[in-house]
Simulated assay, not measured.
Amino acid sequence: MKSFINLFISVVIAVWVIAIAIISVQNATPVSLRFLIFQSIQIPFGLVLAFAAAVGLVGTSVLQSFWGLGESQSRLDEEAEFFIDDEDF
């Protein structure tokens, strides 16, 4: 089951990378980003999209460790200790 999840995640990331590549090739016109009073230099739209996707992937992986999503294994161990077979006695 875990290998299927890893395969699914890899396929989703590959599709996103291909979509970013296609969009960046088709939209090579430079854009500048504005936030409040700040403005960036002129950079291609595909590069902006690639940076946004990379920041999203890294940010999600960092936030998963803070949210405690890695604790699912310890919960399974606690449930395994709670349910004891009658054959063990």
Score class of each variant (00 low, 15 high):
50 A>V: 08
42 Q>K: 07
44 P>A: 10
38 F>L: 09
32 S>Q: 09
43 I>R: 10
54 A>G: 14
34 R>F: 05
32 S>H: 08
51 F>M: 14
63 L>C: 11
65 S>W: 13
60 T>C: 07
62 V>I: 15
46 G>R: 08
43 I>T: 09
54 A>D: 03
25 V>R: 07
32 S>N: 06
41 I>K: 06
32 S>G: 00
47 L>W: 12
37 I>P: 00
51 F>C: 14
57 L>G: 09
60 T>I: 08
33 L>K: 00
22 I>R: 08
56 G>E: 11
57 L>M: 13
41 I>D: 11
37 I>S: 06
34 R>N: 10
48 V>K: 01
60 T>E: 04
47 L>C: 02
35 F>T: 03
33 L>G: 01
57 L>W: 13
65 S>V: 13
57 L>D: 01
51 F>H: 06
47 L>V: 13
59 G>I: 05
36 L>T: 02
25 V>T: 08
40 S>W: 03
43 I>D: 01
28 A>R: 07
35 F>K: 00
39 Q>Y: 00
53 A>P: 02
26 Q>T: 11
23 I>F: 13
55 V>I: 15
24 S>E: 02
56 G>S: 15
51 F>K: 04
47 L>N: 05
47 L>F: 12
39 Q>L: 00
40 S>N: 02
38 F>I: 06
56 G>H: 10
59 G>D: 05
27 N>D: 06
63 L>S: 15
49 L>P: 02
40 S>F: 03
31 V>L: 12
24 S>A: 15
26 Q>S: 12
52 A>M: 13
53 A>R: 04
